[in-house]
């Protein structure tokens, strides 16, 4: 939801499918590079430095650090959410229904908690 909302706030349209590994990240500056960085940082973090030069050229050292920090903290946040079984917030559930279905996100195991909570 925040990806779509923040893109809309700057009058740009992002392909949300890129977040689930489909399509391309048009509408986000250096989006495809950021996706590649997210992929390697999550799947094989010890190899992520292979993209460091490309990242530095595109977003600079501070951008690289922000990207790494975002990926790192979301590795904690997703575990908080899934291990505690938190249901999706009402407002998000309602506003993302179409996209969740289209992108296959409703098939994730954690979706059952939101359904059980009646959200």
């Amino acid at each position: 939801m925040l990806l779509r909302a923040s893109s809309n706030a700057t009058d740009r349209e992002v392909d949300l499918a890129s977040a689930v590994g489909q399509g391309s990240a048009v509408g986000v500056d250096h989006g495809d590079l950021l996706l590649r960085y997210a992929e390697i940082a999550n799947r094989d973090p010890f190899e992520a430095s292979a993209l460091a030069d490309e990242m530095l050229a595109a977003v600079g050292p501070a951008g690289l650090v922000e990207a790494a920090a975002t990926i790192a903290i979301f590795n904690g946040l997703v575990r908080s959410a899934d291990a505690i079984g938190i249901p999706l917030d009402d407002v998000v559930m309602g506003s993302t229904a179409d996209h969740r279905s289209a992108l296959g996100i409703n098939d994730y195991a954690g979706a059952s908690q939101s359904r059980a909570a009646g959200v």
């Binding site: 990806l3 890129s18 590994g21 950021l34 999550n42 979301f74 997703v78």
Partner: peptide, 14 residues
């Protein structure tokens, strides 16, 4: 975008 891709790679519904 980085956050959403990380969440999807971890199959996080929330």
């Amino acid at each position: 975008l980085l956050a959403a891709r990380t969440s999807a790679l971890n199959e996080c519904f929330y």
